[in-house]
Design a binder for these strands. Structure first.
Lengths: 152, 152
DNA sequence: ATTGTTGCAAAGTTTTTGCATTCTG
DNA sequence: CAGAATGCAAAAACTTTGCAACAAT
């Protein structure tokens, strides 16, 4: 059940060295499970654990973990990218609340319904939905259910 | 039929001033129609037209045009954002070729099929598909049609 | 011992901002 | 003429990179 150990072994098998920094990064990602974290947040959590590392190291390792498809990168906005462990068989997309910033996931994936697009072969895709979560709709009367169009 | 003029009039009506720089930006976006352009590219095209402007001006105006919903911003990757005119009734998404970089559009929109997501009210969304275009599949034998999964 | 990895500092990119100057209406 | 818009230069934010020092196998 310990995903972190599995990952470290997988990396070792592939010829990567198991360093304290790598252990820390993977451990942080494993602890938060599905929560999205920025490189900054990962960095801070490692320092908080009493471990030491450096921004370059975090970025370099995230890049490596991406290439090994151990993590997923989610680019929500122009600001920092988010990262999460890539659990197999757990493909999902995100619903981001424009008011409170909360992020929920949905297993709905549009790619399955995409028809033939002139011979284009899809490999990756991005589908993120921005709107208002149930809580914010309930508490904020300025969010008018009726006026909100699904356009754009 | 001249979208650029319409836009300028609309802006004037809203109290914005019609400057040479604004005319140039809108003219560039109008000329390329559905082609996606970065702020950089817009800037260069304006200089190429013999007109003068400045990066801040381009960015400030793109921001304004976005707020007036005259243009759309498409954030494909971590690099520069793309902009395109927002033709009403022409909601679409993009298919981006990972090999040649070509971008085609699709009118398929997943939001229509998204069921209820625990009371979440969608307002905006992003749906971009990365893969291989017909041409690249045809000419590049290393792109194996069968091996490509729709995962991620 | 070898080679991958880290830390540091510096640079790269895209985008934003403050302020004086200029221009539109 | 007043207020809006521009130009310039500088900063902000995130990410990448070169290189010497270090550590895992």
């Amino acid at each position: 059940m310990n995903r972190s150990l599995e990952i470290l072994q997988e990396l070792k098998k592939k010829g990567y060295k198991v360093t304290r920094q790598r252990e820390a990064i993977i451990s942080v990602l494993g602890e938060v499970e599905h929560q999205l974290l920025t490189a900054q947040e990962i960095f801070e959590k490692i320092l908080g654990m009493g471990s030491a590392t450096n921004f370059s190291t975090v970025y370099r390792n995230l890049e490596m973990l991406l290439q090994e498809e151990i993590i997923r990168k989610v680019e929500l906005n122009r600001d920092a990218a988010y990262y999460e462990l890539n659990y197999s068989g757990d493909h999902h997309h995100h619903l981001i609340c424009k008011k409170c910033g909360s992020i929920q996931t949905t297993s709905f994936c549009p790619l399955e319904r995409l028809g033939d697009e002139d011979g284009f072969i899809p490999v990756e895709h991005k589908f993120e939905i921005y709107g208002y979560c149930k809580e914010c709709v309930k508490t904020d009367s300025t969010i008018d259910r009726e006026l909100i169009s699904k356009s754009d």
